[in-house]
Amino acid sequence: MLTKEKVYELAEHWIQSWNSHDLDEIMSHYAEEVVLVSPIAAQLLNDPSGTVNGKAALRAYFKKGLEVYPDLKFEMIDIMWGLYSVVFYYINQKGSKSGEFMEVDSTEKITKVIANYNG
């Protein structure tokens, strides 16, 4: 079960990892069998499902994203959580808002991501 302290620690490390563009640190948050669904994945991977399955595929997708968006930067707006899930609501370097719903396992690794964007 997630606690406020665990969620805020995860959020802080997650955003720092992305803002530093440290792919190993970014990947440290994700489980081996992670599934991500994202409109950006659909666009970058030319796959209308926008689905990325598994940690190796997720790493390749994130690597491509960091190359395509070299000035990528996130600023957290809000954090919400349940027993085994979180929602990170943030703004990116272009001023677009994003909300990512993430399921988290008992080892505090992210197993599922559903990404939503406003533009």
Rank of each mutant, 00 (worst) to 15 (best):
T3G: 13
K6C: 05
Y8V: 06
Y8G: 06
Y8D: 09
L10V: 08
L10H: 06
A11G: 09
A11E: 03
H13W: 06
W14R: 01
W18F: 15
N19K: 00
N19H: 06
S20T: 12
H21R: 10
I26S: 03
M27A: 07
Y30A: 01
E33W: 00
E33S: 12
V34Q: 08
L36K: 02
S38N: 03
P39C: 01
P39F: 02
P39N: 04
A41G: 04
A41V: 04
L44I: 08
P48C: 07
P48K: 11
G50R: 00
T51I: 14
V52Y: 09
A57H: 08
R59A: 09
A60F: 00
F62N: 13
K63M: 11
K63Q: 15
K64V: 10
K64P: 13
G65A: 04
V68A: 15
F74R: 05
M80V: 11
M80K: 11
L83G: 15
S85K: 06
Y90N: 07
N92W: 02
N92T: 10
G95R: 00
G95T: 00
S96C: 11
S98Y: 14
G99S: 14
E100H: 12
V104C: 07
V104S: 05
V104K: 07
D105L: 01
K112H: 15
I114Y: 13
G119F: 04
